[in-house]
């Protein structure tokens, strides 16, 4: 056949959750100044929150956008000159994936006044190009993995099952909102985070009837819950003013420190060692040239077995042709 063409390709598997060390390892490569990045996250959250409100998006769209934003900067260089464009791209993808779609033009037209940018026709067109470019990169970064779960949905179901008061559930819900600016969504699945939010709320209010809380009932490993607990408490301990609880309880930072001290001996997840991170191709910074010159293939975790079979086959092939090899897991 005359116009027959071959795919030359690389393959990338989606890993929705990473360990703390893996996250740090990646951020060290992509983020020159972590302090600035952290401050920006809180700013991005409030920017996207205002945008979400004006566009009448539900909070799940905001939640996904924050996840995509943070995930993007695990594999792409962070810079304060473009991070708001990246945030808008994240919200745009989230709006598609959460079935709350709006035209990109409309999103930009509402976003521009919020960020004090010019809002002329030309400016919007120019902006659209920039954001669509980020969209493409972001989709590749998330490996076209569109599975989503939401903390608040699960939180409310678990709270109902535990017969928590509306008041306590509301507090847990606010904590869940604050968790959007932590890195918890990169590390633990949403049901673990939801349980962690309930635990923090109950400990803070000293509602001890909630305990002992059996997370296994919700198909959740206790170590995962603890991982989420540590992550969220870190926000309240180190940056209390960034969270929304600071408005509700301005003088209560100490109680979070106390909660943290009381659980310091709890086990959290086993982490990877540095060597396995260095040797795993997954943790390389995104190289878009691969998909520019050849093509890139994407898989979900449910195809992991096939992924490693293919990679091993490739490794064996390489071994026979060249002396040096890089192992992938």
């Amino acid at each position: 056949m005359a116009d027959q063409q071959y795919f030359k390709s690389s393959v990338q598997i989606s890993r929705p959750f990473l360990t703390s060390k893996a996250v740090k390892f990646l951020q060290k490569k992509t983020i020159p100044d972590y302090q600035t990045y952290k401050q920006r996250i809180s700013h991005v959250l409030s920017f996207l929150l205002s945008l979400t409100r004006l566009l009448k998006f539900p909070s799940r769209t905001l939640e996904s956008a924050m996840l995509y934003y943070q995930r993007y900067y695990l594999f792409n260089h962070f810079s304060t000159s473009s991070n708001i464009d990246v945030a808008i791209a994240a919200l745009f993808i989230a709006s598609k994936n959460e079935d709350t779609i709006k035209k990109l033009r409309d999103i930009i037209a509402i976003a521009n006044p919020l960020r004090n940018a010019p809002n002329t026709n030309e400016a919007i067109e120019e902006n659209k190009k920039v954001i669509l470019n980020f969209e493409k990169k972001m989709l590749e970064t998330i490996s076209f993995d569109f599975r989503t779960y939401h903390i608040d949905e699960l939180l409310i179901r678990i709270a109902k099952d535990l017969k928590l008061s509306v008041d306590l559930t509301y507090l847990a819900y606010m904590i869940a909102f604050d968790s959007f600016q932590t890195e918890v969504s990169l590390k633990t699945p949403q049901h673990a985070t939801a349980i962690a939010c309930i635990i923090i709320a109950a400990k803070f209010r000293e509602e001890n009837s909630v305990f002992p809380l059996n997370s296994a009932k919700y198909k959740c490993d206790r170590a995962l819950v603890n991982e989420a607990l540590f992550e969220i408490l870190e926000l309240y301990i180190n940056n209390y003013n960034y969270g929304s609880l600071a408005d509700m309880y301005p003088n209560d930072k100490e109680s979070f420190i106390k909660i943290r001290i009381n659980i310091k001996n709890e086990i959290n997840l086993k982490d990877l060692d540095e060597r396995s991170l260095l040797n795993d191709g997954f943790y390389n910074i995104k190289n878009y040239n691969v998909s520019d010159t050849g093509s890139a293939r994407y898989m979900l975790g449910n195809q992991e077995k096939r992924f490693y079979e293919e990679v091993d086959a490739q490794e064996n092939y390489k071994e026979s042709t060249e002396p040096k090899k890089v192992k992938l897991h």
Binding site: D3, F7, S10, R297, L328
Partner: peptide, 13 residues
């Protein structure tokens, strides 16, 4: 990421 040999052909629209 890792290079994987070609898997599919695209022949006719």
């Amino acid at each position: 990421m890792s290079d994987i040999a070609a898997n599919y052909t695209k022949e006719k629209k």
